[in-house]
């Protein structure tokens, strides 16, 4: 029996200009375009992964960061398996706003047990020499807010990008009793998400 395919939805959140789209593009296409447009609306890319011999489709969602677009951005938070909170190490305000992004996500994604939800924090643009946020401050915030894994990334030179996304995948799978979730099987596991429990499959 062939391995079952699963889709994991990961969402990138953070202030405008911290590099959300660039991180996504670096990870999915391994390319970097310094002059990429800022995102209008909502976009996503898929990346196929093999984890423990099983195929997983990572669906990475990228949104426009400006406050004005909040009402049309937040519906897409629903069903996220992991949230990548992103800031730029050369922009202190984007770091201070992490808390707001986290709150917005928990509220609109309707996360029932926020303390158990897998967040991963990315401090992007570490290639830039003039930092405004120190490694220590970032780590401290992550520690105090739920012991989130923290990665210092550079979409420009590819530092830590793949590692960070893979960590997100592992966090999600760990949440789900991964052996059960990914073992090749004839049936889709139904109790993972209560809302799909009424669909039978064989």
């Amino acid at each position: 029996m062939a391995a079952k395919k699963s889709t994991l939805k990961v969402i990138l959140l953070g202030d405008g200009g911290v590099g959300k789209s660039s991180l996504m593009n670096r990870y999915v296409t391994n390319k970097f375009d310094a002059h990429l447009f800022h995102t209008i609306g909502v976009e996503f890319l898929n990346k196929e992964l093999t984890v423990d011999g099983c195929k997983v489709t990572l669906q990475i969602w990228d949104t426009a960061g400006q406050e004005r677009f909040r009402s049309l951005r937040t519906p897409f938070y629903r069903g996220s398996d992991c949230c990548l909170l992103t800031f730029s190490v050369d922009d202190n305000q984007s770091f201070l706003n992490l808390n707001n992004w986290k709150k917005e996500f928990i509220y609109y994604a309707d996360i029932k047990e926020p303390e158990k939800f897998p967040f991963v924090v990315l401090g992007n643009k570490v290639d830039v020499t003039e930092r405004q946020v120190s490694l220590e401050d970032a780590r401290q915030w992550c520690q105090e807010n739920g012991d989130y894994p923290y990665y210092e990334t550079s979409a420009k030179d590819a530092t830590n990008v793949a590692v960070a996304f893979e960590e997100a995948v592992h966090r999600v799978l760990a949440m789900d009793d991964k052996t059960d979730y990914l073992i090749p099987t004839d049936t889709v596991k139904l109790h993972r998400k209560p809302r799909s429990a009424n669909i039978c499959c064989s």
Partner: peptide, 12 residues
Amino acid sequence: AEEQQQRPPEEV
């Protein structure tokens, strides 16, 4: 069956 897990789009 493989597609049936995709409930989130409906919520969105």
